[in-house]
Amino acid sequence: MHPAPSVILFSTLSGLGLGLMFWLGLGLPAVTGWSAFGLYFIAYALAVGGLMLSAFHLANPKNAPKAFSQWRTSWLSREAWAAVIALLAVAVHAIGVIFFDTRLAVIGAIGSALALLTVLTTSMIYTQIRAVPRWNQVTTPILFLTLSLAGGALLAGQVTAAAMLLPLAGIAQLVHWHIGDARARGPDSTPESATGLGGKGRVRLFEPPHTGSNYLLHEMVYRIGRKHALRLRVFAIVLMVVAPALLLIVPFSPLILALAALSHLAGVLASRWLFFAEAEHVVGLYYGQR
């Protein structure tokens, strides 16, 4: 697809912010006062900033408030609710630790669960789309969740947790690519099934419907950057998992941790860019593209 910067930034930043909220809600680290304010400020800046960025890809944003209405069927609507409730629950816990030196453990835990639930709803928006075989697989939510947890642990300074979660996220990423490649090449939907003409022979696009481009081609059959896919994958996995994990072996210092978090962020951005750029939509079959 066309990798819209607003969607890439949104899912990366809000995923990190919500991951940080998860650890803060559990009291890891058990901070109060100004240091709590600093961490919560980072978490909210990432999560809310990301959510606001997502509005930039709407063609008609004045109707955005209506997105809360269809939670019964729509994962995007569920994401809107989960995000608002999570941010409110985490705020209650945050006010307690910042201003009153009191930790409301139950509310904190609820906030943590809701933060993760929000990440899950984001991932399900993509996972549910059967027309994109690469996304429509069980490791998509696992990848989003492990990345969010690992990135959050890095930002929260949870060195042991991060050291365990980063390799897990790396494995999730490798498996996601592996299954995704197989599904994208797989025989599920073909030019023959798309046209129903398979019984007669091999089907090839002879003449497209128009000489110019269209919305579908811009959005879903966008192909830029795929030739660099392998290099970008190496780049992503090294920055996202390998470099931060190695930095965690070095004796702990805030500078090292910040470096690890920045490297992780750059890696996740590359991974998310690939997630969208490599998403082959089956509509491409009608346009002579896979």
């Binding site: 709407l58 063609a59 209506k66 994109v132 939509h281 509509v283």
Partner: peptide
């Protein structure tokens, strides 16, 4: 009611929906 998020066009395997560039 449409906010122009484009998700429905993504969900359709047939490419039956197109976002209007002028109306959004």
């Amino acid at each position: 009611d449409c906010m122009g998020c484009g998700l429905c066009a993504w969900a359709c395997p047939y490419g039956a929906r197109e976002m209007d560039a002028a109306a959004g």
